[in-house]
Design a protein around this nucleic acid. Sequence first.
DNA 1: GTTAATCTACCTATTAGTAGATAGAAATTT
DNA 2: AAATTTCTATCTACTAATAGGTAGATTAAC
Lengths: 184, 184
Amino acid sequence: METKEKIVTEAITFITTRGTNAFSYKDISKEIGIKTSSIHYYFPTKNDLILAVLEHVIQKNKEDRKRNNYSNMKSALRGYIDEHILIREQNKVSIIAALAADINTLEPQIKAILNNYIEEEIDYLAYILNKGEKENLFVYKATPRIQALMILTNLLAISRISMITKEIYFEDVARQILIDIEKK
Amino acid sequence: METKEKIVTEAITFITTRGTNAFSYKDISKEIGIKTSSIHYYFPTKNDLILAVLEHVIQKNKEDRKRNNYSNMKSALRGYIDEHILIREQNKVSIIAALAADINTLEPQIKAILNNYIEEEIDYLAYILNKGEKENLFVYKATPRIQALMILTNLLAISRISMITKEIYFEDVARQILIDIEKK
DNA sequence: GTTAATCTACCTATTAGTAGATAGAAATTT
DNA sequence: AAATTTCTATCTACTAATAGGTAGATTAAC
């Protein structure tokens, strides 16, 4: 792997486990065996690095989604929840949860990109919910977008809460999301 | 207000707006016009300060709840949501959301107390939901504790998300929580 | 021989924390 | 009641470590 890629990979781990204000260039340099000045060569400021991390994760997520080909909206929703399960299994949180926590210490540019990404996530989930409803798979009282918000917030917060309390709470919530909107 | 109290008050604001790793004794000292060494006099280490903040907020929350006297479980649930609305209106997050975000950088002692507090919050909400169900006010598919988790996670995460996206999303979710379990 | 990538060496500011002085209030002794 | 000691809260002054960042040298590849 190229140095630049290694730096981003390490930064992702630090940001999604400790937050943007609890890691330094020194932490990354120690981890991959280069000097901090070499990291500054690729990412002059910490903001540049956080920006690169955010765009990298967004890009990767887009590609992963393109690869999926769900036969129905029930498995699409399961697939969406699985994305969060995968992150939780690595003892990380999503980039949305990570950067949201530090939002008041980040530059407006980051906030703008994050805002856009969150809206896309809501759109994606809302699309699944809406189509699933029309296919007679789901029932829910809210609008598709608000129902998407309900589910997204369940997943974002339980990933954090279950790191403090019982891990099983994550599975409880993940399961309940599906049960609650399942039409039978 | 006494100096010690002022320090805790300022620390609460910093922790619930910027997080535990994005404020320093200097920040507090500037805010209340004393030297950092005076803060160390009351709270020798930062962990001591965070601990005091956590216990202060838990204590205050307990007292506030004691003062409430809800006639039915529907207004008790509304009261619970109102607590979160109040925090959101101050552009803060709850102490649970704040410390959960920094959990991997905090001492185990803090994590243990936070764990206990979260469990108590779940208990409190579950009690309301369970009683409300028996009183024929609420319907939901999950167990009371899991339903409490669903609602708690909705509120915790939307308080953060709505700081990045549209503020109205907070109200949308708060309203939907009530609609979804309302029996009519 | 220019460019890319890395290094050494440095800088300024901040961080968390310690040590010890001091001023005033409160308690104790004479 | 006066003198003395102790306690409380604050300050000045310091430290070692870290943070984020810059400047310029060196090396290796193209």
